[in-house]
Amino acid sequence: MDYIVHILILVAIYSLLVVSLDLALGHTGLVSVAHAAFYGLGAYTSSLLAVRFGVTFGVGILAGMLVAALASFLLSMPSLRLHEDYFMIASFGFQMIVFNIFNNWTELTHGPLGIPGIPPPRILGWKIDSPLEFLLFACFFASLAYFLIIRLTKSPFGRVLHAIREDEIFAQALGKNTLRFKMIAFAISAALAALAGSVYAYYVSFIDPTSFTIMESILIMSMVIIGGAGGPWGPLIGAAMLVMLPEELRFMGFSSSIAANLRQILYGSLLVIMVIFRPRGMAGRFGFGR
């Protein structure tokens, strides 16, 4: 039973990651492989604040989101006005630099050793430390993000994002400051990824840089693509599929390292197959074709 709850918590955290990337990638068309960097910035910020300064989880989470949003401007301000291939490469560089900071700035982050002993969150004296309580905690934030993004994307603001995705020049000709819209969408996406990072950190109580690599970014992007972009259910389906399917491998008797590799092979093949046969993913509203 605990195992099922654990899986559901992971699905909740990944849904949050996927729906936030979907805002930037699915709705606005921004191709970025830096999502894991923002995920990590949230995790590290709230962990460090909690472990070193005893900061409560509410402040820690908000701080993480703020750090991620500001970091996103560092990336978006110089490079969003460039051609989208350049932006993708810049996001690649950004992701690697941030990972290097997590891994090498040992005075701050303990480097590869990671940060242990992250205390469970407290709400008015009530400690959240049982699996079911964590599930509620994670689902609360995931749902909050979901509703936020649905509301945003159904509004006129969202309509401009969709326009930018398909034809930015047309949107500019209609008087929309597309650069500003892109930067805002990207910052929100980053902040919500950081939120997921904080929730993750509180759940596992120990974080290290290996959870926030470029491969993680690509995994999250795969979930967006397989689940489908822009639709309300896509992110949830993508997260659920890619978290739950590989778990079946565990029961087939493979050693854990081989299972990890097989899981990745599963992701990779699923991606290639999806993209050839079903480019809109399982439940996507927008395709990525041009």
Binding site: I218, S222, I265, G268, L271, V272, V275, I276, R290
Partner: peptide, 30 residues
């Protein structure tokens, strides 16, 4: 070539290419 003939965007091709990388990298690992 299949993707190109289907009119896929550059992004889709990029996605397919990293799907392939993931597969081979992990195959080697196994």
């Amino acid at each position: 070539r299949t993707l190109r003939r289907a009119g896929s965007s550059q992004f889709i091709m990029f996605v397919a290419s990293f799907g392939l990388l993931i597969c081979f990298q992990n195959l080697v690992s196994v």
